[in-house]
Design a binder for these strands. Structure first.
Lengths: 207, 207, 207, 207
DNA sequence: AATGAATGAGTGTTCATTCAT
DNA sequence: AATGAATGAACACTCATTCAT
């Protein structure tokens, strides 16, 4: 029986199982120490089983990234689409990201760790970790710059540079709290998100 | 001939040289792949020379962290102390950090990478990478929360939660752009900093 | 295909082969210089193969100790059990040990060397090299103190301190000749054993 | 100012100091882990000072052996010479050795450890650790075989093979208890020695 | 007489990957 | 579909020794 990508159901199930285990292990002990053997042990299979399902560690890492992005897109994009106004979308973007971070801490941690640690054989940082084409559409919708542009066109937002402000928002919504959370797991993400909503409202609204 | 810390002049020079080389190598190929051997090669000495000057890799990592913080403190704190008003300090905080990041890209990258990747033998993230006590005073002065608190007390700033807003500012000023810069070295940090100054002015000023 | 301990047949074979090679190498060049690399060379495999079958050098050392004790027990205990009288057992204890030492010189040498050289990470001498529980029963039967006690109870032996005399016998039967043999491989163990039989007969018999 | 061997007094003092420190370190952490650096640290000098006074580690080991033998000879031989009868000498041999072992545990342990662990570069056991010629005379007097031979000639002792019995006595008096003491520092050496005196009296006396 | 600096050879250990079954 | 076995390259770290000062 075949599902997609020419993969059987059990094949797909195993891949998902291994991907999830890899995420947990990376979140727990860090990407640097997360060897294939340890990931296999977590699943309860032999190390070579992992390499049977993923041609190389690189391919497993790719799968992790895609898995994480897919879940983020599935969780956040529908929320954004419930909103009509740019201000509402921005508010939702902040709150949904915080909620997702809170409920998917290990994924976030793993992806961030990979993002910093993963290099090609040449040592270059990873754009080589390209995103699955089928995810691109959803991925674009996750981009806060789109929201900001809509808000300026509609006149909801004041005048600012869209790209730069998007970078600032990502820094405050994603990069900042992920480090905070890694160092202090008690950090109150929901309270933080509400503060951010107010802060970026003051910073972006017209007049 | 002795200088400070019971260290020879040549000893101090070699330590600095190795520390700098380690920073460069980490920034270039990532902490995970930055082996002692590669660092030694960069300096042009045998690997054992590095371990002659630093008892272990951990000690070298500590030296890197302290070196980076010392330079950041020396570059930014005097600038902050030229300002009287909280608004002025916040503006300077943003601009000085951006300038420092632009001129010390490799240090920033190395420290961030270490911060994400470095774990104890147990796999725990590292607070064990503690800061040199003599740096603590300056380090505290680098904390943006102090500036925010002053601004609320003086009535310059509006009402917001100090700690949470500090996290947001750090995210936008430090964590966000460092990732941006790693992926896109052409990113215009000075332009970004000016945008941030305006953004956080709107977000913090009274009325 | 599984045999015992959840180990494959080939796994068991390899472990035995490596253990034997390790014994030979240690006997030849001493424990201190018997690196995993050299042991692997003796077997004719890559060094990592040894560490594939033994998680660490400590585990290999443990296997050596257990292997040696198992062989000694298998060789000596049945001989002892053929004897009824304490005097007969003592005589057999001496002769069987000498025979075993002559036919298993490298094992003896390796175990002695390990006993002197092996330390924990703290530098403490090793009790951590504990004996495989399944061997304990046989191991106890190897203890000459048991024989002495039986002889005193039966009235065969004269009055002496059992523990101290057992230490003396072990010194004369095991520790002494092993050093002698290491320095002079021509040493006539069988003649020595006969002399010991007479000596300890005079020293222990009643009246 | 010169003493002997063309060495100044301070030179001799330093050599003795280093030799003693080496003995302590070896007894404490074992020969295998007793590096020149650790020995130097114990003395409180730089590692290269040790190699200034001893051309190589081999030379230091030689010095340790000679030092230990010299002290054993100085302590035991005069005691033996107080005795006229072979039986008396044998008794004294046992007691004096036990006393010396009790008061010079670290030396004994170090010498035994070196004896098992030390090999030439070829891996051969060490006869290369030859004894200082000036010690040979005293060393010979330490040999229990001489005592046994005297006892048989005088008719004090019964008939036995001298060399083999000497090996047995050395095993019981030296090799056995040194292992016992290393594993159990509480072992009562004086009580053990008294038991040995009685045991070997029964085993050697005529009639 | 003493020492700081440097080094190459060696250690045990981890790891991603290959391959035959 | 799964796995046990094997391996070479890399890793951090230790050590005895050399040398200039």
């Amino acid at each position: 029986m075949r599902s997609n990508d020419g993969r059987t159901f059990t094949e797909t199930a195993r891949r998902t199982q291994i991907t999830q285990a890899a995420i947990d292990v990376i979140a727990e002990i860090g990407y640097a120490k997360a060897s294939i053997r340890k990931i296999a042990e977590r699943v309860g299979v032999a190390m070579s089983v992992v390499l049977y399902h993923f041609a190389s560690k690189d391919e497993l890492v790719q799968a992790i990234i895609n898995h994480a992005y897919r879940e983020a897109i599935d969780a956040i994009v529908p929320e954004l689409e419930l909103e009509r106004t740019a201000a509402g979308k921005l508010r939702t973007y902040i709150l949904a990201n915080a909620f997702f971070l809170r409920t998917h801490r290990t994924q976030y941690a793993a992806v961030m760790d990979i993002g910093m640690s993963y290099r090609t054989a040449d040592g270059d940082l990873v754009n080589s970790l390209s995103i699955d084409p089928e995810l691109m559409a959803g991925f674009t919708k996750l981009d806060v710059a789109t929201i900001l542009r809509q808000g300026q066109e509609s006149g909801e937002f004041c005048d600012f540079d869209v790209e730069r402000t998007a970078t600032a928002i990502r820094g405050a919504v994603i990069n900042g709290p992920i480090m905070e959370v890694m160092l202090n797991p008690e950090f109150d993400l929901d309270g933080y998100a509400e503060e951010l909503v107010a802060l970026f409202d003051r910073a972006t609204r017209r007049g």
